[in-house]
Simulated scan of single mutants.
Amino acid sequence: MSGLVVDPDRCVGAGHCARLMPQVFDQEPETGVVVWLGGQVSGASDDVVREVVALCPSGALRRPPAS
Score class of each variant (00 low, 15 high):
M1V: 14
S2N: 15
S2Y: 03
G3W: 00
L4D: 05
V5C: 05
V5S: 02
V5Q: 12
V6N: 08
V6Y: 04
D9F: 02
R10T: 13
C11Q: 00
V12P: 01
G13N: 03
H16S: 14
H16Q: 09
C17T: 07
A18C: 05
R19S: 11
R19G: 03
L20Y: 00
M21D: 00
M21L: 15
M21Q: 07
M21W: 04
M21E: 11
P22C: 08
P22V: 10
Q23H: 11
Q23W: 08
F25A: 10
F25N: 08
D26S: 14
Q27P: 09
E28S: 06
P29W: 07
T31N: 05
G32D: 04
G32F: 03
G32Q: 03
V35A: 02
V35F: 03
V35T: 05
W36I: 03
W36D: 15
W36L: 13
L37G: 09
L37A: 04
G39F: 07
Q40P: 03
A44R: 15
A44F: 13
D46L: 12
D47E: 15
D47N: 11
R50S: 12
E51L: 15
V52H: 06
V52K: 07
V52I: 08
V53A: 12
A54Y: 05
A54W: 10
L55W: 08
C56R: 02
S58P: 12
S58Q: 09
S58K: 11
G59K: 10
A60P: 05
L61I: 07
R63W: 06
P64A: 11
A66P: 14
S67L: 11
S67Q: 13
